[in-house]
Write a protein that binds this DNA or RNA. Structure first.
Lengths: 120, 120
DNA sequence: AGTATATTCAACCATCCGGTTGACGATTGA
DNA sequence: TCAATCGTCAACCGGATGGTTGAATATACT
């Protein structure tokens, strides 16, 4: 019964999952490769991917023993239209978007780049 | 530490809260009036409003003993831009938005219209 | 003053969520 | 065949979430 908007927004509410989505913007990735930059167990990432898949934001195709993850941006369409209806924000400001991505990928606590590698 | 995107998306993930936001599109409302159509305790609605306020999606101003809730659509801007970056969805399709709103307000399980419909 | 209205607080409950570890099935390859 | 790799499953944990009820606070009305 949970609306599509429910699952999409809920999936996007987690910074790890948003980071994964932005990683997948560049290319399809195997689960292990998605997990590699994170300081989290593979099973944890696997769960996040399942949530993203459940929301339709990615699809996963198994070839051999490797499961490939592919971004499905169309799943955001409904949610995006819903939001735009409120603010009528300027359409598709790619500059702003890239700034966001950079900030998330670099500075975010879940970001894969230069986190304090504690307990490793 | 939780990102603004975290709180905004999390706030939007709940259908009751989305319905409240669309109600506030038409006008500012008192807490009691917001709660009236819902099959939920006033305290429950009050909590939802607090979450919306925490995400910046609404502001609440107390005049007398009435607390007025006002939509703050700008709080969606960052999240909206983030999403648009993925799909580059057609800009501001108001028709689609109104269809969404109608569907949510009428058919959704949390929709305020037909209060008797609960025990399915 | 006394009562009604508007809203929140506090405690409580069940469930979900994000994460872990360890075992497991499946596939690859030496 | 045996071992390594890929990924999920199951059980568990602590903390957040969504909801309730009942008391408390603040304002308004008569």
């Amino acid at each position: 019964m949970t609306d599509q908007l429910d699952t999409v927004f809920a999936a996007l509410a987690d910074p790890t999952r948003r980071t994964i989505l932005s990683m997948l913007l560049e290319d399809d990735m195997a689960v292990t490769d998605v997990a590699e930059p994170f300081e989290m167990s593979l099973a944890g990432i696997s769960k996040h991917l399942a949530i993203l898949a459940g929301a339709g934001l990615i699809t996963q195709e198994k070839r051999g023993r490797v499961k490939w993850c592919k971004l499905e941006p169309d799943a955001m369409r409904a949610a995006s239209i819903w939001m735009q209806g409120f603010g009528q924000f300027e359409p598709v400001n790619l500059d702003a978007f890239e700034r966001f991505l950079e900030a998330e990928l670099r500075g975010a606590p879940t970001a894969p780049s230069e986190t304090a590698r504690q307990g490793d």
